[in-house]
């Protein structure tokens, strides 16, 4: 019974809190620009509205076009269940769950990409190509980051990997993971979620043809992914495992809020990069994670 309650609480936490993040980012951007901006809860209103709407589907697309967003959403939710939440711990923890998490993200990507290609649109093709190509570099950086956490803690289970303090490599890892967060969630230097110039987009270009409930699933999934990466970043860098439960929860929440505000600030202060410079930035992220790995290797207890 307690287990069930815990599970429901955890799912609610991910489902209900995730759409807050894009709202906060938009608020920060509006604040920097001196505007009032949309309400923080805007995404909730959007989701509720989309859920009631009808769907227009391309004549070229198969029924999978409607189903695949649900699969992406499930993959992301499952990944979120594996991610420990500070004092709550993970919904399920076992050896090697870090790799399952990475591959669940890849599964989500595959489903999104497949649905995008269903439409036969050149714009979706463009977004897809960028997504899968940049994912190659992002994947290398993520594996290096997970390796460095694993070397540091001597474990491959996320719950124990994210506990101990990281020492000197923390700064490197934080920078690397932050860049990965921006890339994986298609935030500003890589992609502009606000743009209406389709040529410049990655993620938005892939979901151009979606509408109604599937679009709601996609938007909600994207916000969960953002929360997932923010939680990963905070727990990878801060020694949350050593605090009292309440303090840990507070630090985690504050950390996620900080990361969100930082994303908003980056988006307000930077312009999107030219596409040929994107691989450079991702390689930088990879190198940062690699150096974090080497530091963890040489610095930790032998």
């Amino acid at each position: 019974m307690k287990l069930l309650l815990d599970l429901i609480l955890r799912i609610d936490c991910w489902l209900l809190l995730a759409p807050l993040l894009p709202g906060i980012i938009n608020k920060v951007k509006a604040w920097v620009a001196g505007r009032r901006g949309p309400p923080v809860l805007q995404l909730y209103y959007d989701l509720a509205r989309l859920w009631k709407k009808g769907v227009v589907m391309s004549t070229l697309a198969s029924p999978a076009f409607v189903i695949l967003p649900a699969l992406t959403w499930v993959a992301l939710l499952s990944a979120a269940m594996l991610m420990p939440l500070g004092p709550l711990g993970a919904g399920l923890t076992f050896r090697g769950d870090a790799l399952v998490l990475l591959y669940l993200l890849a599964l989500g990507r595959f489903c999104t990409v497949w649905a995008a290609m269903e439409t036969g649109s050149a714009f979706e093709g463009m977004g897809t190509v960028r997504e899968v190509s940049y994912a190659v570099l992002a994947e290398a950086a993520l594996i290096a980051a997970v390796l460095s956490l694993s070397v540091q803690s001597g474990s491959i289970a996320l719950a124990t990997m994210l506990g101990p303090p990281l020492g000197a490599g923390a700064v490197l890892l934080a920078a690397g993971l932050f860049i990965i967060l921006l890339a994986e969630n298609c935030r500003v230097p890589f992609d502009d979620p606000n743009t209406h110039l389709e040529l410049a987009m990655i993620h938005e270009a892939m979901v151009l043809d979606h509408s109604g409930p599937p679009l709601a699933a996609i938007l909600h999934g994207a916000s969960m992914k953002l929360l997932l990466f923010a939680v990963l970043l905070v727990q990878a860098v801060l020694p949350i495992g050593q605090l009292q439960p309440l303090a840990a929860a507070a630090v985690l929440a504050a950390g996620v809020l900080g990361v969100t505000v930082a994303v908003g600030l980056v988006e307000s202060l930077w312009a999107r990069f030219a596409f040929r410079r994107v691989p450079l930035l991702l390689t930088t992220a990879f190198l940062l994670c690699l150096f974090a790995l080497l530091v963890a290797w040489k610095g930790g207890p032998a």
Binding site: G54, V55, V66, I67, V74, A75, P214, A217
Partner: peptide
């Protein structure tokens, strides 16, 4: 995971059907 995917896929399909699905050309 497989079970959840099947369930979520069916659910979304039903919802879309209930909400009215229209066909149109790809929006280019």
């Amino acid at each position: 995971l497989a079970g959840l995917m099947a369930a979520a896929g069916t659910l979304l399909w039903r919802k879309v059907m209930a909400n009215n699905l229209r066909r149109g050309p790809t929006w280019d």
